[in-house]
């Protein structure tokens, strides 16, 4: 897969984006100013370009015009005026992300764009389970597995973070959109049901009071 080009002049944010996307499994390349970005756009092949709008050298809108139409572009900016967003999308950008953003949101948007444009890995695998985000379908050894929406979301998070410890509260918040109540067992119940439906008894490891972890290993 071609790498993702990140054009962002603020090192802190550029690093954050790179860390997030690399964690999701996409190779990245970071440039900090408009001129370097123009060079990269000219010489390299990119599966996606993330463009900040306020840049030294050339600004994001100017750079967008350099970019071949078939390369998807996501604008990334602190400007939240509707007119700016409309301008960005009119210029043919696939998406428009406003700062500040959550890393997961960024990853999800990037994935959506990659999927829409037929790039990137479209399905997620682990231990004989295949999750197809486009169809929201899960199969195990070729047979459909029926999951509730929460279970599906939970499985997707696990598959996207293989071998990484996921903390309980953050995991809950991500799936349910709010902080869990004190002593809530909801998350554990869902993990139990997921284990049962997929036959994953040792694959999802419980870290007592910390969280869960999907083991790395065979796809």
């Amino acid at each position: 897969m071609d790498p993702i080009l990140i054009v962002e002049d603020q090192a802190a944010i550029a690093d954050l984006i790179a860390l997030t996307l690399e964690h999701a499994g996409w190779p990245c390349h970071v440039v900090c100013d408009g001129r370097a970005a123009a060079d990269c756009i000219e010489t390299g092949r990119w599966s996606l370009i993330l463009l900040d709008i306020m840049l030294p050298g050339f600004d994001g809108y100017e750079l967008k015009q350099y970019i071949a139409d078939e390369t998807p572009v996501i604008f990334l900016t602190a400007r939240i005026a509707v007119a700016d967003r409309v301008k960005g999308l009119r210029m043919g950008a696939q998406d428009y992300i406003c700062k500040p953003f959550e890393p997961e949101e960024l990853a999800a948007r990037v994935e959506a764009v990659l999927r829409r444009t037929g790039r990137g890995n479209t399905v997620l695998h682990a231990f004989g389970v295949v999750l197809d985000p486009t169809a929201r379908r899960v199969r195990k050894n070729g047979e459909d597995v029926s999951l509730t929406p929460r279970e599906y979301d939970l499985l997707e998070v696990f598959l996207r973070n293989r071998g990484v410890t996921l903390y309980r509260d953050a995991l809950f918040e991500r799936i349910w959109g709010e902080m869990p109540e004190e002593g809530s067992r909801t998350l554990d119940l869902h993990v139990q049901r997921l284990r049962k439906k997929l036959g994953w008894h040792s694959e999802i490891r419980t870290l007592y009071k910390i969280g869960y972890l999907l083991e790395e290993g065979a796809p």
Binding site: I13, L16, T20, I80, K99, T165
Partner: peptide, 23 residues
Amino acid sequence: FTHEVKTPMTAMLGYASMLRTRE
């Protein structure tokens, strides 16, 4: 001002979110 505030905000929020989500 929006830009000046949002840039550090983005970094802080992003890194904090990363640190509290996973190891």
